[in-house]
Protein backbone atom coordinates (compact mmCIF):
# COMPACT_ATOMS: atom_id res chain seq x y z
CA UNK A 1 0.00 0.00 0.00
CA UNK A 2 1.35 3.41 -0.78
CA UNK A 3 -0.94 5.82 0.96
CA UNK A 4 1.50 8.42 2.21
CA UNK A 5 -0.82 11.12 3.48
CA UNK A 6 -1.19 12.65 6.89
CA UNK A 7 -3.45 10.88 9.38
CA UNK A 8 -5.27 12.65 12.22
CA UNK A 9 -5.78 10.28 15.13
CA UNK A 10 -8.51 11.33 17.59
CA UNK A 11 -9.07 9.52 20.87
CA UNK A 12 -9.52 10.79 24.42
CA UNK A 13 -7.38 7.94 25.78
CA UNK A 14 -3.64 8.52 25.22
CA UNK A 15 -2.78 4.81 25.44
CA UNK A 16 -5.12 4.08 22.55
CA UNK A 17 -3.45 6.82 20.49
CA UNK A 18 -0.08 5.28 21.30
CA UNK A 19 -1.27 1.78 20.39
CA UNK A 20 -2.97 2.77 17.13
CA UNK A 21 -0.13 5.03 16.02
CA UNK A 22 2.32 2.14 16.53
CA UNK A 23 0.14 0.06 14.22
CA UNK A 24 -0.03 2.86 11.66
CA UNK A 25 3.74 3.32 11.71
CA UNK A 26 4.22 -0.42 11.26
CA UNK A 27 1.92 -0.23 8.26
CA UNK A 28 4.12 2.51 6.81
CA UNK A 29 2.07 5.59 7.72
CA UNK A 30 4.45 7.68 9.78
CA UNK A 31 2.81 11.08 9.36
CA UNK A 32 0.41 11.26 12.28
CA UNK A 33 -1.11 14.17 14.15
CA UNK A 34 -3.15 13.60 17.27
CA UNK A 35 -6.11 15.15 19.06
CA UNK A 36 -7.54 14.21 22.44
CA UNK A 37 -11.11 15.44 21.93
CA UNK A 38 -13.60 16.62 19.34
CA UNK A 39 -12.92 20.36 19.60
CA UNK A 40 -9.20 19.78 19.29
CA UNK A 41 -9.79 17.47 16.31
CA UNK A 42 -11.64 20.23 14.47
CA UNK A 43 -8.89 22.74 15.23
CA UNK A 44 -6.14 20.36 14.09
CA UNK A 45 -8.10 19.45 10.97
CA UNK A 46 -8.38 23.11 9.99
CA UNK A 47 -4.73 23.77 10.78
CA UNK A 48 -3.07 20.69 9.23
CA UNK A 49 -5.58 19.57 6.60
CA UNK A 50 -4.89 15.81 7.06
CA UNK A 51 -5.82 13.29 4.35
CA UNK A 52 -7.49 10.83 6.69
CA UNK A 53 -9.09 10.98 10.13
CA UNK A 54 -9.21 8.00 12.50
CA UNK A 55 -11.60 8.88 15.30
CA UNK A 56 -12.96 7.31 18.47
CA UNK A 57 -16.76 7.21 18.76
CA UNK A 58 -17.23 7.62 22.48
CA UNK A 59 -15.51 10.69 23.81
CA UNK A 60 -16.64 12.97 26.62
CA UNK A 61 -18.40 16.26 25.75
CA UNK A 62 -18.33 16.23 21.96
CA UNK A 63 -18.52 12.60 20.85
CA UNK A 64 -17.17 11.09 17.64
CA UNK A 65 -20.47 11.27 15.77
CA UNK A 66 -20.91 14.96 16.56
CA UNK A 67 -17.32 15.68 15.60
CA UNK A 68 -17.75 13.70 12.38
CA UNK A 69 -20.77 15.82 11.46
CA UNK A 70 -18.87 19.01 12.25
CA UNK A 71 -15.90 17.88 10.10
CA UNK A 72 -18.24 16.96 7.24
CA UNK A 73 -19.84 20.40 7.49
CA UNK A 74 -16.39 22.00 7.22
CA UNK A 75 -15.21 19.71 4.44
CA UNK A 76 -17.73 17.38 2.78
CA UNK A 77 -14.86 15.39 1.24
CA UNK A 78 -13.01 14.62 4.46
CA UNK A 79 -12.23 10.92 4.87
CA UNK A 80 -13.08 9.60 8.32
CA UNK A 81 -12.78 6.09 9.73
CA UNK A 82 -14.40 5.53 13.11
CA UNK A 83 -12.69 3.62 15.91
CA UNK A 84 -15.09 1.72 18.14
CA UNK A 85 -14.72 -0.65 21.02
CA UNK A 86 -18.04 -2.28 21.83
CA UNK A 87 -19.79 -1.49 18.60
CA UNK A 88 -23.46 -0.93 19.06
CA UNK A 89 -25.27 -1.19 15.80
CA UNK A 90 -27.18 2.10 16.12
CA UNK A 91 -23.96 4.05 16.65
CA UNK A 92 -22.32 2.41 13.65
CA UNK A 93 -25.34 3.16 11.49
CA UNK A 94 -25.30 6.78 12.67
CA UNK A 95 -21.61 7.08 11.81
CA UNK A 96 -22.01 5.55 8.35
CA UNK A 97 -25.05 7.73 7.70
CA UNK A 98 -23.08 10.80 8.69
CA UNK A 99 -20.49 9.90 6.05
CA UNK A 100 -17.85 7.80 7.80
CA UNK A 101 -16.00 5.48 5.37
CA UNK A 102 -16.06 2.56 7.74
CA UNK A 103 -15.55 1.57 11.37
CA UNK A 104 -12.77 -0.42 12.93
CA UNK A 105 -12.80 -2.24 16.26
CA UNK A 106 -9.89 -0.98 18.32
CA UNK A 107 -10.32 -3.63 21.03
CA UNK A 108 -9.10 -6.52 18.90
CA UNK A 109 -5.52 -7.87 18.65
CA UNK A 110 -3.11 -5.61 16.80
CA UNK A 111 -2.85 -7.79 13.70
CA UNK A 112 -6.63 -7.67 13.24
CA UNK A 113 -6.65 -3.90 13.62
CA UNK A 114 -3.76 -3.64 11.16
CA UNK A 115 -5.56 -5.79 8.61
CA UNK A 116 -8.80 -3.81 8.94
CA UNK A 117 -6.94 -0.51 8.63
CA UNK A 118 -5.02 -1.66 5.58
CA UNK A 119 -8.20 -2.84 3.84
CA UNK A 120 -10.18 0.28 4.67
CA UNK A 121 -7.43 2.71 3.72
CA UNK A 122 -6.76 0.72 0.55
CA UNK A 123 -10.41 0.81 -0.44
CA UNK A 124 -10.87 4.47 0.48
CA UNK A 125 -7.94 5.69 -1.55
CA UNK A 126 -8.39 3.15 -4.29
CA UNK A 127 -4.93 1.69 -3.84
CA UNK A 128 -4.08 -1.90 -4.43
Amino acid sequence: MNFTGMILLVDDEPHIRKFVSLILKQLGHPIIVEAGNGEEAIAVYQRDDPDLVLMDVSMPRMDGIETLKALKALDPDCAVIMLTSLANRETIEQALEAGALNYIRKDTPKDEIAKALEETIGAAFDLS
Binding site: E13, H15, I16, K18
Partner: peptide, 8 residues
Protein backbone atom coordinates in the same frame (compact mmCIF):
# COMPACT_ATOMS: atom_id res chain seq x y z
CA UNK B 1 -10.07 0.09 26.58
CA UNK B 2 -6.98 0.31 28.80
CA UNK B 3 -6.86 -3.49 28.93
CA UNK B 4 -7.09 -3.74 25.17
CA UNK B 5 -4.17 -1.31 24.97
CA UNK B 6 -2.13 -3.32 27.46
CA UNK B 7 -2.75 -6.43 25.40
CA UNK B 8 -2.01 -4.65 22.14
Amino acid sequence: NPLASIRG
